[in-house]
Amino acid sequence: MRVTVLGGSGAWPAADEPCSGFLLRHEGFSLLVDAGYAVLPRLLELMPAEQLDAVYISHGHPDHCADLNPLLRARALGGADPDPLPVYAPHRALDAVLALDRPGMLDAALARHDFAPGAGFAIGPFELRTALLPHWVPNAAVRVTAGGRSVVYTGDGGPSPALVELARGADALIAEATYPEVMAADDAPYLSTAGQAARQAAEADVGRLVLTHLWSGSEPGEYLDAAARQYDGRIGVATAGLSFDA
């Protein structure tokens, strides 16, 4: 399974870094995991919109799903007439982004699959298992398995035993780390620091930790240092263009 980072900026995109978006490919099948602000242009550098096979959205905040709108517009209006795009998301997570256009405009471009976090299902060659993480809105972390390899992605969420269980023994954990080590008390139940993400990676015994959702414009070295104090495996930062085999 090949993982390509399309973006990893938290909250809003930087000039050279889109928000959350990850392209997973296996056996010719392409799955986009999250579609935050400015992700679509990076995806289009790799493939035409009509060649994408499916989308998974972790939750309904716009830095994780806003570019679903232009993606669906490209498929609906681009002239290639592809099959409807399967999009998997927690119940009601897509309501706001799909309401950006007039009713019915994008219906033919979309095959909507709503689910409750905790569900498991298959998308093409990928087996998915999800878990609810604490966040302001329902957020479905996901474990994606193909070819005997597994990648776990948190979306956003505060520290939780559910993540450790979901990630146990995974080859890679892509973990939200909005702050290096300290955050505001109001955010603490709903987001994670790099140190917290690393502690959970160590507890789950994952093979690689990739920090994502860093506060836009922050210094990645602070996050890497904080994570290295808690986890002695491979650590990286999700930046657009990074690719690795799980």
Rank of each mutant, 00 (worst) to 15 (best):
G7C: 05
D67H: 03
P90W: 00
A35F: 00
G124E: 03
S9H: 04
T145C: 06
L166G: 12
V182H: 11
A172I: 08
A93L: 03
A122Y: 00
R234C: 07
M183H: 07
Q196G: 06
A49V: 08
R75M: 07
E45T: 09
R73H: 14
A188L: 03
Y231Q: 11
L31H: 13
S58N: 15
A140T: 03
D95E: 13
P161Y: 13
S150W: 09
D156Q: 13
T145H: 05
Y153H: 15
A108F: 06
L133H: 09
P18Y: 05
G36C: 04
H59V: 01
L100D: 05
D187K: 11
G241H: 09
A108H: 12
H113M: 01
A198I: 01
D107Y: 08
E50F: 03
G158Q: 04
R2W: 05
D205A: 15
A49I: 05
V55D: 01
G78N: 09
V206A: 05
L132A: 15
A54C: 01
L191W: 09
D156W: 10
G241D: 12
G60M: 04
L85G: 01
V137Q: 06
D34N: 14
E165K: 15
R199V: 11
T193L: 05
E45L: 12
V206T: 11
A146R: 08
M183W: 02
H91Q: 08
G147N: 02
V237P: 00
A240V: 11
V5T: 01
P82Q: 07
C19F: 00
A15I: 08
S30V: 00
A197P: 10
G158K: 03
A76T: 05
P103L: 04
G60S: 05
V87Y: 09
G118H: 07
N69A: 10
R129A: 15
F29D: 01
A109K: 03
Y88S: 05
V55H: 02
G169L: 03
D245S: 10
Y56W: 13
D34S: 13
F244G: 07
R2T: 11
Q196I: 04
A74L: 06
G221I: 10
S192Q: 15
A99V: 05
D34C: 13
P189K: 04
R149Q: 14
G79M: 03
S9F: 05
E45N: 02
H113Y: 07
D171W: 04
A240R: 12
